[in-house]
């Protein structure tokens, strides 16, 4: 037995042939697209468990614990209301400014949180990537789910705010469901895209806060972009209104608030833009991430 260990039992075969003969596969090969989707599906329980775990883990050391899922969006809304509603007085031109503002903050906050968590989804889990073999897209996807769960808490807060500010319950509220679905597909794609970019460009983490803040100010969260771009040429205004976040926010306002100021686009064309963005970002993000599957964990 001992001698057999030392001498190569198949001296005539090259290692690659030997491997092929016994059906061994090359380690760290990139799977085909269909196979990749299938393995991701097989890992769905892991993705959800990991998302839940992160959600719980972030607040275990806080005394108020899981209550912060609701307190954070409320505090956020209060801060922006203080600045833009009370001090700067933006509210005078928009009816029900509180609901208008909260729609913007919560909808934008969702994608923004996914984007910043997605950027570090690979780099902050390198230990796990180097220890376990699982489809890497699980990480950015579970980041998206974590934020989606927090979005549900903010949506409950938002509905309460909307009711308190005197909006009647309407059937139109139900359009939030397809809207949040489209936004989640968009955000998931964005998380995948940024996860790969963030693993290659390590400085992206430092740049993202500035990108996100610029995006926030450009998405008409605290003011009506349509009013602000009145004096611009039509093409410039149209371009600014194609911003996916603006479209998601405006559609949420259409659903929840009866007195929304008219937007640049009609509601139906905004739905088309939202669906287009979701499709493009979802597919592009996924393909881009999959193409890099082999390189994650290299450091």
């Amino acid at each position: 037995m001992a001698e057999a260990v030392v001498t190569e039992p198949y001296p005539a075969l090259a290692p690659a042939q030997l491997a092929a003969m016994h059906g061994l596969r090359a380690a760290g090969d990139r799977p085909g697209l269909r196979e990749y989707v299938r393995s991701l599906w097989a890992y769905r329980h892991f993705i959800i468990a990991f998302a839940n775990a992160r959600n719980v883990a972030t607040l275990t050391t806080a005394r108020l614990g899981q209550l912060w899922h609701v307190l954070t969006p409320l505090t956020n809304a209060a801060v922006y209301y203080l600045i833009f509603g009370v001090i700067l007085g933006t509210s005078s031109r928009i009816e029900n400014f509180v609901a208008y503002l909260c729609c913007g903050i919560f909808i934008f906050g969702y994608t923004s949180a996914v984007a910043s968590a997605g950027t570090v989804a690979i780099t902050s889990n390198l230990n796990m990537i180097r220890a376990l073999q699982f489809p890497r897209a699980s990480l950015p996807l579970s980041v998206t789910i974590t934020q989606f769960q927090q979005l549900l808490a903010s949506m409950a807060v938002l509905i309460a705010i909307v009711l308190v500010t005197g909006e009647p319950p309407r059937l139109a509220w139900l359009t939030l469901i397809p809207l949040l679905f489209l936004q989640t597909v968009f955000s998931g794609g964005l998380a995948l895209l940024l996860a790969r970019l963030g693993s290659k460009i390590v400085d992206l983490k430092q740049i993202m806060p500035f990108v996100l803040r610029t995006w926030l100010y450009g998405s008409g969260v605290f003011y009506s972009l349509t009013t602000a771009t009145d004096s611009m040429p039509t093409w410039a205004s149209t371009l600014l209104h194609l911003n996916p976040m603006l479209v998601f926010i405006e559609l949420a306002r259409e659903a929840l608030i009866t007195t929304t100021p008219a937007s640049h686009f009609s509601v139906s064309s905004m739905w088309a833009v939202a669906a287009g963005w979701a499709l493009v970002m979802g597919a592009a993000g996924f393909l881009y991430f999959w193409r890099g599957e082999k390189e994650y964990g290299r450091g």
Binding site: P15, A16, A19, H22, G23, L24, R25, A26, A27, G28, D29, I129, R130, A131, L132, Q133, K294, E295, G297, R298
Partner: peptide, 22 residues
């Protein structure tokens, strides 16, 4: 790590049966 497929080899190849666990 290379055998586990977690660190891609720069040159050469590793062939394994099934998915090794590190």
């Amino acid at each position: 790590r290379a055998i586990a497929g977690l660190l891609p080899a720069t040159k050469g190849a590793v062939y394994t049966k099934g998915q090794p666990s590190l």
